[in-house]
Write a protein that binds this DNA or RNA. Structure first.
Lengths: 226, 226
DNA sequence: CAGTGTGAACCTTTTCACAGCA
DNA sequence: TGCTGTGAAAAGGTTCACACTG
């Protein structure tokens, strides 16, 4: 059963992370794990782990830790990963191909079921055992494969069109990799991953580090606001 | 000058987003913009825009809005984007190639200066005008091109090794695309982008939507906690 | 008077610290 | 005794609402 109260988004993201660590632990033969060890494996604090897991219910044993296999099961159930999700990718350029080939998806509950591209040159090609089809065929393909999640891997200028096509095909959950802000009717969830933004955040902190180094080297620290 | 107080990370991420919108506006010939319009273009609220921009100082004009060109300049300066950052990518598989070819980087202040791969088969290949070199040559290449930011696009099992190589080459800021938790000495910043996690978050909400639809269709709502 | 700049309220998330249980 | 589960406190981020100004 799914809980009435939704789990905080920050926790959902980490549950996914714990799942990865736990699956490795199962493979390594571990039977139980403490919040401390799981935290170390996931790169977070143990208090966070315990609080996060408490949203699933009380599955730990005081004094011992958590049963690894059971925890994997509970997290998968909560995240809706009991069966693989078929996904559709719009845009088979470099990024689309990388995503279609990404083994991490298969290992973590997703299956690339549909690939479409607006470029007729790309139609007919194959990635793995999936053939690239024209965008126009999206709706029947989505229906046929019962796709519920779409991924946009087009250039920015084609992204809104791709989103419209996905929504038109009945998809209500979209992951957008194009650097563009997309709009859709209420009820459609759009998440974005902006690769350049991630780099820019890094550059911001790198720049700060450089300044700190410079200040340490003997320059007076500035206190002014401009 | 860089502010003594760091800007909140959430704000840094959005500044980057505003920048993209503003650059488009400059191209379109806009001279001033209100927080309202910028908010619409970036997909956020106007209060957020104003609060975010206030971290840069008071660059708006009451009653009119912000000078677009000046704002672009200020954000670039704050984010450290006044000159392009040379970056190094470790791993030239599907994802590494996609990243190396990603035009968004070039447009947003980054330049792929170094590409390395552990696979001798891949060494010698070219992506754009950059040749793929062996991982062993990372240190001199990083020094030569003054690279300060590294990107890991290897499979998970090779990611820690890639991180060690980058740190050994003097890099202190790393963006990790491999689904693995990496460790490095203090002073090294590691950010991660986990493509599968993003999909899993989406799947979680999609699953919840499905449950809500089912409940609406006549099933009694559950109130139990398990 | 349109639209910025910003305290204050509010909400979310993290951290703390310890009671309670195996 | 060791480790979970969780209230309570703290920190971080968002939204509100309005004084202020060009």
């Amino acid at each position: 059963m799914v809980r009435d109260r939704p789990i905080p988004e920050a926790t959902v993201a980490r549950l996914s992370l714990y799942l990865r660590v736990l699956i490795d632990l199962v493979a390594a033969g571990a039977v139980t794990i403490s919040s401390e060890s799981l935290a170390e494996g996931a790169g977070v604090t143990s208090a966070k782990v315990r609080k996060d897991l408490s949203f699933l219910g009380s599955y730990g044993t005081r004094g011992k830790g958590y049963d690894v296999a059971y925890l994997v099961h509970q997290i998968q159930r909560e995240l809706g990963l009991t069966q693989p999700w078929p996904i559709a990718i719009v845009g088979v350029g470099n990024l689309g191909q990388a995503l279609a080939n990404f083994r991490g998806f298969g290992e973590r509950g997703f299956r690339v079921a549909v690939l479409v591209d607006a470029d007729p040159q790309k139609v007919g090609g194959r990635i793995g055992d999936v053939e690239v089809r024209p965008v126009g065929e999206l709706a029947p393909l989505v229906a046929e494969h019962r796709v519920a999640i779409g991924v946009i891997a087009t250039p920015a200028r084609a992204a809104q069109e791709a989103a419209d096509a996905l929504v038109g095909a009945g998809i209500r959950s979209i992951l957008n990799f194009a650097p563009a802000v997309l709009t859709a009717e209420p009820g459609v969830t759009i998440r974005k991953v902006d690769l350049a933004i991630e780099l820019q955040i890094l550059a911001y902190y790198e720049q700060r580090k450089a300044v700190v180094r410079e200040v340490r080297r003997g320059r007076p620290a500035t206190t002014s606001r401009s």
